[in-house]
Amino acid sequence: MTNPFEDETAQYLDLVNDEGQHSLWPAAIPVPAGWRTTLGPTTRQECLDHIAEVWTDMRPASLAMQMDGVSGH
């Protein structure tokens, strides 16, 4: 059995959580709680390209706000 996260022929989603963290996710697997779809279903490479383009700050949103001195209120 192939790893569903590495199957070049499968369809994928780009998921994002409340902290702004992205995840490549096989479209055939239910989206886990706390995550929402921002792209897909589409090819694995298109999802990876999209994630590389939009996820430029790897810090969780709450940490980025704290470090940048931004109030969350």
Rank of each mutant, 00 (worst) to 15 (best):
T42M: 04
V31T: 14
R59Y: 00
D49Q: 07
L24R: 13
P32Q: 06
L39A: 10
P32M: 12
A28P: 00
S23R: 15
V54T: 13
T43Y: 04
S62E: 11
Y12G: 06
E6K: 11
Q21A: 10
L13Q: 04
V31N: 12
G34V: 13
D14K: 13
G40A: 09
D18C: 07
S71K: 07
D57T: 01
A27W: 12
W25T: 04
D57K: 08
H50C: 08
D7H: 15
E53V: 11
V16G: 12
P26D: 15
Q11S: 08
A28H: 15
Q66L: 14
S23L: 06
S23T: 02
I29C: 09
A61G: 00
E8G: 02
G72I: 04
Y12D: 11
A33F: 13
L39W: 03
T43A: 05
A33D: 15
R59H: 03
A10L: 06
W25A: 05
I51W: 00
D14C: 15
G20Q: 08
R59L: 02
P4C: 01
E46H: 10
V16I: 14
N17K: 09
G40M: 09
S71W: 01
V31L: 02
D18N: 08
I29E: 14
W35F: 15
T9W: 05
E6M: 15
L15P: 08
G69H: 07
N3V: 00
E53C: 00
R59M: 05
S71F: 03
A28D: 14
I29V: 13
F5D: 13
L13E: 03
D68N: 14
L48M: 05
P4G: 05
L15I: 07
Q45H: 08
A28L: 08
V54C: 04
P30I: 06
P30F: 13
F5G: 14
G40Q: 00
E46K: 10
E19C: 04
Q45P: 02
E8A: 10
C47E: 01
A61I: 08
A64K: 01
G72T: 07
E53Q: 10
T38A: 02
V16E: 11
F5P: 07
